[in-house]
Design a protein around this nucleic acid. Structure first.
Lengths: 345, 345
DNA sequence: CTGAAAGCGCTAACAC
DNA sequence: GTGTTAGCGCTTTCAG
């Protein structure tokens, strides 16, 4: 019986105009005189009007989201896709549907471009673009036709960001800092530490290097280099063996890419004391957590990245809510005791 | 243009009955012949009908949730309330409203009972009950009048759980295990560790003790006792000083209650080497993270507990979804590097 | 440029 | 027991 919520009907009553014109005005659609539009927005604010998102999504025409994503090829992408699918699913009642466009060769910009264009030509209302690996999207956006379809990316889009509504990624610099701090709890002061990444060209990987190196120094450790594995387990293993050749294996390693998850096992077999911080949690990695050299993993929550990206796009499309330009997921620390929560999903 | 979603209209067409009777049947409401009810549920399943929650919440009458919660007295409760309020807020468009009943004296069962009854008498559709500290709810449920209003608790409800629809709490045993594992990364094998709790009578605290003690042993540490602080900082400090009297301060401490957050500062001032794991993140604690003795904090995410509790109650009330009887929040590890994400909220 | 009317999918109130 | 009607708050035709 108290103050009900304000509806457009209230505004309509207050102003003596029809509901139809009010929606148009409030949703920035054409076909309203400037004078009336101003009066409407004005009284809407005065009355404290908040659109009812439930009623809105009931009435509007369906929203179609196109998803351009590499074929599942790393565990990262399959989790990512799971998150995207989950969020799409929860938006089903809101008349949102997703259409997947799968990129066969994730190293080919051309493949991305053709899928992006196909997607835009199909007339989707918004596009979700999973990152190109290992480089940014600069090249891409220079070449695709200028549709005004909003794009949300997963992974940092590189320099050419004007055409991107929002990007979702992990806070990579923070990941690096966290790895260094965790290592410093198990490695004595003055210990030598290294970082392995996929490719330095990838902005997120280079941010991890910066964060890790800076913090390692601050913690009194000795950072001794960043190595590129190209996400090839064999390469990673070779590099590590070379490093240990001279009899002095590093005291700590931050394996900052989820592309070479077999390295920990090699390190255990070698019997060196190197403490390890890894990235994410794949099946191969699970058993490693029991080993004494394993410090923790830094979890990037790919599933959450997928969910947030869909949601940002939806809110922009449906509720006219401008998303943050850059959505950063804070990484989590995984140890043996809380491992379960990161794999069950 | 493919297959649209199945609606009750489709079922109605299929069976030649009205939509009204279909809702009744599908929502287990009286006034439908058993035969028809069966036919309806049958074809609903056959057609793969999924109720549209958006349309449903538009049409139904409002849902009122009563929230019985202590006056904010620990930081835990203010975060909890923030989470509850946030979730209620996001359910506004779904015609859900919350009414708060604040308990003045959280140590008095009588106060809880009177508020619970007031709440039930006001005719709310569901009740959210924040835990009684430090004991369980056993005493309570023995005495309140037997309304069938569903109750969701925050915190373990003790033995008398039949009357509780669901309980939301942190995974306390896991917290204990995590604390022990984190300490074992900084404390040498054979090190002596202790745990401080609020009260052993509190089921969650005693679970923390079990988890911590068992895992400390497994990690080769020497657990040397669990101490009750009654959430009194002065008591906690006195106990710690006594422990260190003989010149042998413990090598590690798990401060498993958020009630005595000033202890770390004392330990720093004493200049002993004791490594510290704390609980949650309060303002007093923030500066402690820079200290070398600080290992981490185990975050119980009170805000999330509040959100999940509201959601469980809502889904049960609105969507007839039976919640898990016991919803366990996995704790998170807080170190200096990721501190920000836990305080900004 | 503005309004009237229909309807999203479901539920509630009332007839039959 | 079952059907009919009238909305929930908003958007979307389609007239004017």
């Amino acid at each position: 019986m108290p103050k009900q919520r304000v509806t457009i009907k209230d505004i309509s009553g207050e102003l003596g105009v029809s509901c139809a014109i009010i929606t148009r005005a409030l949703n920035d659609r054409p076909g309203v005189s400037d004078a009336l539009r101003r009066r409407i927005t004005e009284t809407a604010r005065r009355l404290g009007y908040q659109p009812n998102s439930v009623a809105r999504s009931m009435a509007r025409s369906p929203i179609r989201i196109g998803i351009v994503i590499p074929c599942q090829w790393q565990s990262f992408y399959s989790s990512l896709e799971k998150g995207i699918a989950a969020e799409l699913d929860s938006l089903l009642d809101y008349k949102v549907t997703g259409e997947f466009y799968r990129v066969e060769n994730p190293y080919s910009a051309d493949d991305y471009i053709s899928k992006l264009e196909a997607c835009a030509n199909d007339g989707v209302d918004g596009i979700l673009l999973a990152d190109i690996y290992p480089v940014g999207l600069d090249d891409l956006f220079g070449r695709i036709s200028e549709k005004k379809t909003p794009i949300v990316t997963i992974g940092l889009p590189g320099k050419n960001t004007e055409s991107v509504l929002s990007s979702v990624s992990v806070d990579s610099y923070c990941s690096g800092v966290m790895a260094a701090q965790m290592l410093s709890k198990s490695v004595d002061a003055g210990g030598r530490v290294v970082i392995f990444v996929g490719s330095r060209e990838n902005e997120e990987h280079s941010l991890k290097i910066s964060g890790f190196t800076a913090e390692a120094k601050r913690q009194g450790l000795r950072p001794e280099g960043a190595y590129e594995t190209n996400d090839d387990a064999a390469v990673a293993e070779r590099i590590f063996e070379n490093l240990s050749q001279s009899g002095k294996a590093p005291d700590g390693i931050y394996l900052a890419t989820s592309g070479a998850q077999t390295l920990p096992e090699l390190i255990f077999r070698m019997g060196v004391g190197t403490r390890i911080v890894t990235t994410d949690v794949s099946d191969e990695l699970v058993s490693a957590f029991r080993h004494k050299n394993m410090v923790c993993s830094i979890f990037q929550d790919p599933e959450k990245q997928g969910r947030l990206a869909v949601r940002a796009l939806y809110e922009s499309l449906a509720e006219h809510i401008e998303p943050e330009r850059k959505i950063l997921i804070p990484p989590s620390i995984v140890i043996e005791a809380n491992l379960a929560q990161f794999i069950e999903k």
